[in-house]
Amino acid sequence: MPYDIVVLIKQIPDLELIKVNQSTEEPITDGVPFKFENLSKNSVEAAVRIKEKNGGKITAVLFGNEKGTQVMKEAYAMGVDEGILITGYSENNPVLTAKVLAQKIKQLHYDLVILGNQSADSMSGMVAGLVATELNLPLLSNAVSIEVTDKIVKVSTATEKDVIKLEATMPAVISVTQETNEPRFPPVLQIIKAGKKSISTEQSTVKIENTSKIISKKAPKSERKRLIFEDVDKGAQEVAKVLKEAMK
């Protein structure tokens, strides 16, 4: 049977390109390009694999800013059918993000909601559970594999100690991990086609009370000595000395 799937995707700043302002010690995010967050790619891939086997429609929802259109086009190229971009994202706030996403999802038809378990920038790991609560749906999280038959979805979850096999009746929320699959690189033709497809864009209207206020947001301090040897022999001698000291 065909499955309608909502995939929640994310744009994040290209973390490796973030430099630090030496006088304020703050990381500089202005001008850093956005990219398609890795686990969002795993989420799209998981949805596309289900669609390829069973049919259905994939809708991607992205809560971000105007630059999210580029990410949405990549999602189209991977096999997403329809994209909704909600603008108005400012600081990381999982409760707000979940409310914005859930409000949109409620207007769509779906059997599954798929998203990443812990995105690479904020790493909160909270959104899947919060979305599941908002929608009052079962949560199958940290999936390393997903299987669908009729209205039943089975997921294997890897915790630190165990592999747990879970089963729920659809609709359900699934969060995926990096190990779930290997996201595809779409062929050039798909990318060109994707560039022409329209994206529906709207502004978020959800407001929540937030008691937290940021005191500082600085680069972590590194007070390392940074003695770098290009003379391998000299370096090895110095390092041996340090290691001997640490062995005491």
Binding site: I12, P13, L15, I18, V20, E26, P27, T29, N92, A120, D121, S122, M123, T211, S212, K213, I214, I215, S216, K217, K218, A219, P220
Partner: peptide, 16 residues
Amino acid sequence: RYGLGGKAVIEEESKS
């Protein structure tokens, strides 16, 4: 906590 994938330390005050 860390933000921006570990590139920032976010110090915040809250009633959480």
